[in-house]
Design a protein around this nucleic acid. Structure first.
Lengths: 159, 159
DNA sequence: CTATATCATAGAATAAAATTCATTTTTATT
DNA sequence: AATAAAAATGAATTTTATTCTATGATATAG
């Protein structure tokens, strides 16, 4: 017995996801043309995908350099309590400059992605914000020199 | 002498970015209301932001679990040529399952973010795709157990 | 201080798209 | 095959996007 995930997406839904993850502002009319459907039918599906939390939002992708966020860093850290470290994680998540917080397997406990203006502002962030997060034992900061690829598009399966 | 970045965004532009990075499908009418402007004026600004590559795209955020991508991993790797490693990076970037490729400072050379169905498909990816990428000396894979936060919204400055 | 160039906005008109809804068709289930 | 549920159609209506011209603001040079 194969347990499918309970989202039950057909190939039309997957096609919608594929199109919208590349262009969130595509019109219903164009979506309908691409899918050989009528706009109202597409609209209904999109609404349903939103309600089912398959589509969880629509984001404009902003060039970080244009808003003066030139530094990207990954910070891996160890925590005192290795399992009940959820409060540590949620404290980290509250920091606006923190884009990602992952609990990871291995030596460390968290992997955090951070974007700041420059190394000085990263330093300030570490000093002012991270220092207040409880139960952190060690911190290892990795500076990104160059980003070659950065996309949030997923590989949507065929069926 | 302060060198501003050459994007010259005023506070209205920044407000547009703030609104659109949270809701890429907001209508011009609603944007205009929020900004106390007329729709045509807002439209012109948005178009300009696109042309100047301040806004680089609009993405629907798809729930990875809904499309059966339940495994997230970060892979850090060393490369043979530490500086002219661009061909290695661009080969990595060509792999669709790879969401991010960063050149990093420190012991390693690259940090790669990958999403797959499960550990078996990650293994297959490493075996079939990564093995073909030239000049890789070592690979260290970190499995994500839980993602506490993952957003691409940036902290847009006030002015 | 004024002329001029540049840029942004307002507001109206038009075109396009979104949305709603009653009906029909398709699909799945018994 | 009969029934129920889900999805699609197509027309009507509402809303939004887009275009265009006139106006106003701002900056710069003379």
């Amino acid at each position: 017995m194969v347990i499918e995930n309970n989202f039950s997406l057909d190939h039309i839904d997957l096609a919608i996801l594929r199109l919208m993850q590349d262009n969130a502002r595509i019109s219903n009319v164009d979506l309908a043309k691409a899918l050989d459907l009528v706009p109202s039918a597409v609209l209904e599906r999109v609404k349903k995908l939103e309600k089912k939390n398959v589509i969880t939002g629509y984001n404009a992708k902003v060039n970080p350099v244009a808003v003066d966020l030139k530094l990207l860093a990954f910070i891996s850290m160890k925590s005192a309590q290795s399992f009940s470290c959820n409060d540590t994680a949620s404290e980290l998540a509250k920091i606006p400059d923190v884009q990602e917080v992952h609990v990871i397997a291995g030596d460390d406990c968290f992997l955090v992605k951070v974007r700041t203006t420059d190394s000085a502002s990263l330093m300030a962030l570490l000093r002012d914000e991270f220092s207040k997060v409880p139960n952190i034992l060690s911190v290892k900061t990795t500076i990104v020199l160059e980003t070659v690829k950065e996309q949030q598009q997923l590989v949507i399966p065929q069926k």
